[in-house]
Amino acid sequence: MSELSVPHLLGIKYLKPADIQLIFETADHFKEVINRSIKKVPSLRDITIANIFFENSTRTRLSFELAQKRLSADVINFSAAQSSVKKGETLIDTVNNILSMKVDMVVMRHPNPGAGIFLSKHIKASIVNAGDGAHEHPTQALLDSFSIRERLGEVGGKKVVIVGDILHSRVALSNIYALQMQGAEVAVCGPKTLIPKHIESLGVRVELDLDKALAWCDVANMLRVQNERMDMSYFPNTREYTMLYGLNKQRLDRVNKELVIMHPGPINRGVEITSDVADSDHSIILNQVENGVAIRMAVIYLLASKIK
């Protein structure tokens, strides 16, 4: 297959396995490009992209912007904090105003689940979901799988445990879809209060004991506790969370096997992961960040080639 089956990247759920394969193969080429001394290609000279962020972001926004600039696209950035959204403008009005400036693609992060899907039904532009509430964060899941593939050769057949705040995590949901689509086994691990009810119906294992989960898996993806999304107390205190679900050197040594440790960032050092683990050879956290640019270049390139 040489093109994506979808005109937007709204979530991993809407992709086919061949789409993921194509994105990875394209990202391989872009990874070679961004390691040249001149890291730029002129493919998207005639494309304008708006990055619309209704929620805070550092790494995702920078990674998208860098990917767009490496492809020579024109980029405009918009963050809700300094905009007319505060004056009461609706989402469609905001985006339509931006689109009347002849924008071809919108990369959007929004606190409401489904915001990208809603937008795709109302506007003419290619949409990339950069995170919609606790729903999906497709480019993060793609770069996570791409990093596993880079480290372990392939994703299929691997056992991956996602640890932490699954309830509030869009990264977890997108990762579950992406990993399963590629034939990996997925488990989630965390305090019962932070595991969504009925998550087993997605075909994932639920493990409440981190040591057992680590003994089972090849890859551990450590998530951050998203305090900003918590409307109530889900566990007694941070210290207890760290004791039960924090990954530290002792825990890792006890497992006594070559685990791959991931984290989508930002890290709360000493809470879900200690520094000696985050900075160890097991960790591919910084590879994830580098691969993020290549993956986003691939997604944008493949979507832009469908804009006629």
Partner: peptide
């Protein structure tokens, strides 16, 4: 591939090879 001037002019997405 990424340097061609017919990007989006052809019907098919241009697929790259290894440099």
């Amino acid at each position: 591939t990424f340097f061609r001037d017919d990007f989006r002019r052809s019907d098919k997405t241009l697929t790259a090879n290894k440099t």
